[in-house]
């Protein structure tokens, strides 16, 4: 565990806390994409199947359980909470995510390190995570007034990805047998997806303006 990895994980954790607090405090999920949350739920379920088969550390297990539990909580609120579900931007959140899920799964069947159910699902989760933010970014583009917390949520998630790249560079330089090409390429793609958002986020912050993304 290096400082970049820990910082990345903390950004990931903060992003989810920000989202939970926002929805819970305002009783509103306006601007939040249910599709992205459901994609993350699929990502976490497929990747963390090893909760049942191997124990890495207490830290690892705890974080996995937090990510799973928090994502399912958000989905539950957005779908079923009697106050919150009314605030969901159903008409705007129309990204057809089956067009992400199917290609990622097919790619995982072909490009993987080992053709076993666990490994294919793990690889699928890596590919799917790279594009899971897309419905959220499209929704933000359609939302005129992006509230600070939703903007911060996406910014923290993007920071988590950027820090993971630094973590990989550090590990590559310090661990002799460490390499994971599929993860690196997916992670770089995932970070590139955020670059446009980062540009407008930082610009709005510097100019003290409300964040809005051009359509």
């Amino acid at each position: 565990m290096n400082i970049f990895r820990l910082a990345g994980d903390m950004m990931h954790l903060f992003s989810i806390i920000v989202l939970l607090l926002k929805i819970n405090a305002t009783r509103s999920c306006r601007g939040v994409s249910l599709k992205t949350q459901e994609l993350y739920a699929i990502v976490f379920v497929c990747r963390y199947l090893d909760l049942f088969t191997s124990f890495i550390s207490l830290y690892n297990t705890t974080m996995k359980l937090i990510f799973l539990l928090s994502t399912f909580t958000i989905i539950y609120w957005m779908r079923f909470h009697k106050v919150i579900r009314v605030t969901y931007d159903r008409e705007q959140d129309t990204f057809r995510y089956q067009f992400l899920i199917l290609p990622c799964f097919l790619l995982a069947l072909v490009l993987n390190n080992e053709f076993s159910a666990m490994e294919v699902l793990w690889t699928f989760s890596i590919y799917l995570e790279a594009v899971a933010i897309l419905p959220q970014l499209v929704l933000l583009q359609r939302t005129n007034n992006i509230d600070n917390l939703t903007g911060n949520y996406v910014f923290l998630l993007g920071s988590y990805r950027a820090l993971y790249i630094l973590n990989w560079i550090y590990r590559f330089m310090t661990e002799p047998n460490y390499r994971q090409y599929l993860v690196w390429i997916s992670g770089i793609v995932q970070t590139i997806v955020y670059i446009d958002f980062f540009y407008y986020y930082i610009r709005s912050w510097r100019n003290n303006e409300k964040l809005s993304l051009p359509a």
Partner: peptide, 10 residues
């Protein structure tokens, strides 16, 4: 503690 194929990452 950590494996070297990245499966220990979150």
């Amino acid at each position: 503690e950590e494996s070297d194929d990245g499966h220990d990452e979150l």
